[in-house]
Simulated assay, not measured.
Amino acid sequence: MRISSHQFHLNSIKNIQHNTAEFNKASVQLSTNDRISKPSDDPLGAVMLLKLESEIESLSQYQSNMDAVNYALGQQEVQLTGIVNQSYSLQELITTAADGSMGTEQLKALGQEMRVIFQGMLDLMNAQDGEGRYLFSGSETNNKPFIQDAAGDYIYNGDERIREVAVSPDSNVLTNIIGSDLDPNADFLNAMKDYLDLIDNPPAAGVGNESRTMINNLSDYLGHITGEITVIGGTMASMDSLATSNQDINTFTTNLRDDISAVDYPEAYIRMNESMAAYESSMQVYANVTQLSLFSYIK
């Protein structure tokens, strides 16, 4: 079969270009340690890499979510723990006031101490974060959770929305405690307000019965507060477990991605040398043949 000069030139150039491309491909792979620089290098591997990268990004986002939740719940836990500590001080004063031997002036003095502690507890229930958002107002973070209405009674001024974020493909966790769970119907706040008004002008018989009732109200209130602290603790513990699981998945996924994308250095080096040898051979043949003419065969 005859091969025309034109066809020979085309085939030679095609071989030279192919070998050059293979050399460049292997060279780039060796320098970047990236076996797949474009989908055509390995279509199936490229699709798998996209899926793995998406999973790694999702895991990173889950970790960011957990970090944010841990910070938010940590702030709330600090406030609630402060309420518990102040509640114990208040309980001690109320117990002292229940003693029938307390005189009017002594009760008033106790009342002044209680009022300071009560205000401190109220401030903690109305705590704000560093950006001025109220911690216990649900989604109404611009609203102070507990305020007094026109009649002077305390009411909850937030909403009932518990915010959640995803921390795994199948798990969401809460990010906030709502004020209505801390003091349902503001019962404790209003009972304490009335008790303080009473102790400012105590009856001659003292405030023994009222103090014992107030201790029970305080105990119920403490139950709500400590219950929410337990919720926070459980949520944070579950995230610790999820974080460990997510990290294991991330490590496996990252290693799998690297295995798929990483270059086999010995194999790539051999391919590069073979491409260079084929390139040089093609160039030598092309150069020799193009120098031939009809006169080369005339003796």
Score class of each variant (00 low, 15 high):
Tyr88Met: 11
Ala46Cys: 12
Asn65Cys: 07
Leu50Pro: 06
Leu80Ile: 00
Ala98Met: 06
Val84Arg: 03
Leu73Lys: 00
Asn85Glu: 11
Gln91Trp: 11
Gln76Arg: 00
Leu80Met: 15
Leu50Asn: 14
Leu59Glu: 01
Val47Ile: 14
Gly100Pro: 06
Ser58Leu: 08
Ala97Ser: 11
Ser89Tyr: 04
Ser89Ala: 13
Thr96Pro: 05
Val69Ser: 06
Lys51Gly: 05
Ala98Gln: 07
Leu73Trp: 02
Gln76Thr: 03
Tyr71Phe: 15
Gly45Phe: 04
Thr95Asn: 12
Ala97Phe: 01
Met66Ile: 03
Thr81Gly: 13
Asn85Arg: 09
Glu53Ile: 08
Leu52Asp: 08
Val69Gly: 03
Ala72Ser: 04
Gln79Lys: 02
Ser64Arg: 04
Ser60Trp: 02
Leu93Trp: 04
Ser87Arg: 10
Asp99Met: 10
Gln76Glu: 09
Asn85Thr: 14
Tyr62Val: 03
Ser89His: 05
Leu50Asp: 11
Asp99Asn: 12
Ser87Trp: 06
Met66Asn: 02
Glu55Asn: 15
Leu90Ile: 13
Ser87Leu: 13
Leu93Phe: 12
Thr81Ile: 02
Thr96Tyr: 05
Glu57Lys: 14
Tyr71Glu: 03
Leu50Cys: 08
Ser60Asp: 12
Leu80Gly: 02
Ala97Thr: 08
Ala97Tyr: 01
Ala98Leu: 08
Leu73Thr: 05
Gly100His: 01
Leu59Phe: 13
Leu73Tyr: 02
Asn65Gln: 02
Ser60Leu: 04
Asp67Trp: 05
Asn70Arg: 09
Gln79Asn: 09
Gln91Pro: 14
Gln61Gly: 10
Val47Ala: 04
Ala72Trp: 00
Ala46Asp: 12
Val78Tyr: 14
Ser64Leu: 05
Leu80Phe: 11
Gln75Pro: 02
Val84Thr: 09
Leu93Arg: 07
Thr81Cys: 08
Glu77Asn: 15
Ser89Gly: 14
Ser87Glu: 07
Gly74Arg: 04
